[in-house]
């Protein structure tokens, strides 16, 4: 896609342009956040609550139900 066609499709009409900015920001935010979170949780594997829960959560819950 050359710059001219990008211009024609996205930038020519202001409503489309603003929409592109909003949708782009939303998509970037979600992918960026989930990518960072994935890396962060992988980096701290074993220390997080979800790991602890998986390790000791199940028997604990059973005790609570009794």
């Amino acid at each position: 896609m050359s710059f001219a066609s990008v211009y024609k499709v996205l930038f020519k009409r202001n409503s489309i342009f603003v929409g592109t900015v909003f949708v782009g920001a939303f998509l970037f935010q979600t992918t960026f956040d989930s990518a960072i979170t994935k890396w962060y949780e992988n980096h701290n594997k074993g220390k997080l609550w979800k790991d602890v829960k998986a390790r000791i959560g199940a028997p604990e819950e059973a005790e609570d139900d009794e």
Binding site: Y40, H43, N44, K47, W49, V52, I56
Partner: peptide, 16 residues
Amino acid sequence: WPQNGPFETFDHASIR
């Protein structure tokens, strides 16, 4: 400490 360093979390098993 488990949380030493800019990207390190607490050790939640230790908190428990």
